[in-house]
Write a protein that binds this DNA or RNA. Sequence first.
DNA 1: CCTTCCCTAACGATCGATCGATCGTGTCAT
DNA 2: ATGACACGATCGATCGATCGTTAGGGAAGG
Lengths: 212, 212
Amino acid sequence: MTIPTEQRRIAADEVRLPPGVLPEGTKGRILREALRLFAERGFHGASIRDLAEACGIRSATLYAHYPAKEHVLAELIRIGHEDHHGRLLRAGGTDPVSRLRAVVREHVLAHAEYPLLATVANNELHALSPEMAAPVLSIRAGGRRLLIDILNEGLAQGLFDMPDTFLAMTAISGMGMRVAGWYGTGVPYTPEEVADAYADLALRIAGATIPR
Amino acid sequence: MTIPTEQRRIAADEVRLPPGVLPEGTKGRILREALRLFAERGFHGASIRDLAEACGIRSATLYAHYPAKEHVLAELIRIGHEDHHGRLLRAGGTDPVSRLRAVVREHVLAHAEYPLLATVANNELHALSPEMAAPVLSIRAGGRRLLIDILNEGLAQGLFDMPDTFLAMTAISGMGMRVAGWYGTGVPYTPEEVADAYADLALRIAGATIPR
DNA sequence: CCTTCCCTAACGATCGATCGATCGTGTCAT
DNA sequence: ATGACACGATCGATCGATCGTTAGGGAAGG
């Protein structure tokens, strides 16, 4: 009954989370196992009994740590978006070329280093109630704006050359998001290698002069 | 209780399927409504009673047309993959440059014209039993190989210049897949415009000489 | 004593699926 | 033309299983 790798939503099988975000004890273990199960089967495809069994506890015990199943998902999505957005804000750069490179690097790194987290944050948001999803949506809008602004500034300075800014933004953003789906232990690249390569490809998309 | 557009898995709200694939009568209506519900909420997030209600029938009637809920999903995924793969095979081109342009065009067109179908085919495959998913997996492998072969041939002929063929393939494939998530009625582009623009971007990624 | 953590047991609701009955319709032989 | 019959579509009712969640208690450490 083993699901072949090709059929899974994600190729990665190592459950990783950003350091420092995991609570100690059972509460953290619930978050870890929920990340794995929600990434593999989706929020509605994993029951709280599946989650409890993976944690070595009974389903009722979950409610001593989280008020509802939805809150576990909300916490994972919050962690994923905060890590991703924090990386974007931390990405430096003095000119549009180096800023685009840095931002795409961090964007891809987030998806390659934490593929399960990115998958849950990106694909399970719809399972959240609108109230719990609201703070995440504003973070998302900020990330899009950040990328658009870099592209527009590069255009204004004559450093970039693209037929359409919006479509370049969706392409750069989209190819990076998709990394979470195929990056895994069997891939012969480090996350940094993928991030650097994708940053070069993003500069090509932007039509940057002297991309290297 | 309306879910804001930003939170949904897909921006599109028009339920479209390739012409000629929809059975007549109730059987086709079930397929249409299942496409909408599975795309919005995921396979496990939509119950057969939700589906029946959307069709204006009782849940028991569903089983007069499909032997199980899973078969409805399998049919949608099959349709999606056959449409997508058929497009790739139909994409012509005499040289690697024109072939890459044609293949990316069709790849993007499939995701922009049928966003719900692409979303279900790409993101709900894991909900299928391995036996029902098997035929789809071979189709997928064929599509990847087709793109890789074009890139390699372009490299061999000195027409392309990329740092890494595999990463270029994942980038081109990924940015196209992601179109299904954001393309919708509010977007001021036709599917053809998006497909043409993305084909240009793919040629930039491939490092094609004289991309325009 | 209180607090923390986890348990057993069970709640009502909903899940996917099955049952037999009914209805309309088309196909026969008479 | 007419009655007998078969058939696909749909129904109400219901199955056992599982869902998310709650109530209440036991055990360990301060």
